[in-house]
Amino acid sequence: MERVDYDKYLRTSRIPHIWCPGCGHGIAMKSILRAVDHAGWTKENTVWVSGIGCSGRITGYVDFNTLHTTHGRAIAFATGIKLANPKLNVVVVTGDGDGTAIGGNHLIHAARRNLDITVVLLNNNIYGMTGGQCSPTTPQGAKATTAPYGNMERPFDIAGVVAACGGNFVARGTVYHVNELEKLMRQAFLKHGFSFIEVMSPCPTAFGRRNKMKNAIVMMEDLKERSVSVKKAKDLTDEEREDKIVNGVLLDRDKAEYTDLYRQLIEQLRGS
């Protein structure tokens, strides 16, 4: 791994962060910073936008233009920023509750528009900050404070949903597989057009404790054991794939990007 001067990118005075011991979000933040560094983005030309929840707090810690917005709406705010100034690099960090429940509509439409922003969704399968309520990615049967008898609903395959909606790049990784995650992040950040990366991130405090995974190590091992590559997953039956984490690139293409199309429209109208 290349050496990266993380302090350059961090608001060290805002740290220690609020994430619990064993939370995967810090690893994800490091991975994002490495990708930003690799892409050559600077604190002047990069905007980070987050919503509400544990993932939302990331914008307080990174020393860039940062927006900590309302619950679920980070992508909508980011859309305004990018369209008003397409030269800015825009990163959205969201979570499974923020990004797929209250913010699900914004996610699928941003993918459909193929706006050149990068959305990193930290999926810990639970509402962590509010104390462990069920989220749209909580596995069926898992316990949560609002699912004391076990969750009856089937979880979202988020990356699959986004890939079906549009965009140019969709991938999934885990904070256990840090080297692979970094590769995926680099691809996502360099991709022109809408790029989306789902990062599986353990929450021992609000999810693990109630679901027979007593600590962070057990949760990390769980990520390792359940992971399969996109390639291998193709050979599995639906039943075999049910509780697997399918990692890798799910979508990679180069469809026309939204701000480019809009710029062309302006040039066409003003030229005539």
């Binding site: 905007v47 936008v49 927006l67 917005t69 309302t70 709406r73 909508a76 705010f77 980011a78 859309t79 305004g80 920023i81 990018k82 369209l83 008003a84 100034n85 800015l88 509509n105 914004h106 439409h109």
Partner: peptide, 14 residues
Amino acid sequence: IAAMSAIIGASLAG
């Protein structure tokens, strides 16, 4: 909601 959020983002971008 998205429309309102987007104009705030755009306003912050100048």
